[in-house]
């Protein structure tokens, strides 16, 4: 990206005056900073939204106005930071997500290693996991409720079940993606299988594992909330449902914004840990562009 434009200042001496090279101006979207673009896009969406509601094209029953949503968001946030019921429910949801994510991380890495490194894992576990991956796991929520009751357990289980797949798949893929030359080097050093695993393959797989963990962070939130929908008890998912039943759609929107922010922060947290652990490189959003 650098080095494409040669920096020839106008006053360079000794050269015959040439017509200044026409610099093709960058397109507008390239020049404007991303935060300004984002704000503009958001303003546009909110503007259209407000117009649609103000003109009465949709009733406020179905679609609360941005203003109403904003007020609801303010109320909900205030409740959250002052330790009201929203805070209590948030803590429960957040803990469920965190526990689920931790279980998903451990189980995902362990199963990923088994699939990539053992014959039993590759020939027995892998097909089973593919079948399970294809299953609509959300549909299992009532089952988990039946098994684990109405407290936090079924939600933690749901979060873990949904979140662990990308960790497992990416771990296995990362272990399988070992560089041929590096593998040859380790063989030439007469490294044992175990040394090849933990000094080479595992290190190589780390960026993939983190890519999986980032997906898992977001999926864990979805898992916990869905389980709360179906399992009841406490949590933000329950509050979302109550808002929905009470036709308080502005409040529902506010909760969705809150949950999105939470999932985003969790994603960022994993990203920060990744930058520290995998200090020699970092992955983008998807493992494929690493």
């Amino acid at each position: 990206m650098a080095a494409t434009t040669t920096p020839t200042p106008a006053g360079t001496t000794g050269e015959p005056p040439r017509p200044p090279r026409k610099e093709t101006p960058k397109p507008l979207l390239e020049r404007v900073p991303v935060p300004i673009l984002m704000t503009a896009a958001l303003a546009l969406v909110i503007g259209v939204w407000q117009t649609v509601v103000s003109l009465g094209w949709v009733t406020e029953y179905v679609m609360p106005s941005p203003a109403a949503t904003g007020i609801a968001l303010w109320d909900v946030t205030l409740d959250l930071v002052t330790g009201g019921p929203v805070w209590d429910n948030f803590v429960i949801s957040a803990l469920q997500v965190l526990y689920g994510l931790i279980i998903a991380a451990v189980a995902g890495v362990v199963l990923g290693v088994l699939i990539a490194e053992t014959t039993l894992g590759r020939r027995v576990l892998q097909p089973m996991m593919v079948a399970l991956y294809a299953a609509p796991k959300v549909a299992l929520a009532p089952l988990f409720v039946a098994w684990f009751g109405f407290d936090m357990t079924p939600k933690v289980v749901m979060a873990a079940v949904i979140a662990f797949f990308p960790v497992m798949v990416d771990t296995a893929a990362g272990l399988a993606s070992v560089d041929e030359n590096e593998d040859k080097l380790f063989k030439s050093m007469r490294a044992s299988r175990w040394q090849r695993f933990y000094k080479l393959k595992l290190m190589n797989a780390l960026p993939f594992v983190f890519a999986g963990l980032k997906s898992a962070a977001v999926l864990a939130v979805i898992g916990a909330i869905v389980a709360e929908f179906l399992g009841g008890g406490e949590g933000l998912g329950v509050m979302v449902q109550m808002a929905s039943v009470g036709f308080a759609l502005d409040r529902l929107f506010a909760f969705v914004v809150l949950l999105s922010a939470f999932a985003y922060l969790l994603y960022l947290a994993v990203d920060i840990v990744e930058r520290r652990v995998v200090f020699w490189r970092s992955t983008g959003f998807l493992p494929s562009d690493s």
Partner: peptide, 29 residues
């Protein structure tokens, strides 16, 4: 045991310093 190899690529491990890379065969054995 008494053979040292070198390939077309340097094949240095990205997560190790130069010294740690140089010492890798010793660490392995």
């Amino acid at each position: 045991e008494r053979v040292g190899m070198m390939f077309q690529q340097a094949v240095l491990l990205a997560w190790r310093t130069v010294q740690q890379n140089v010492l890798l065969p010793v660490e392995v054995s």
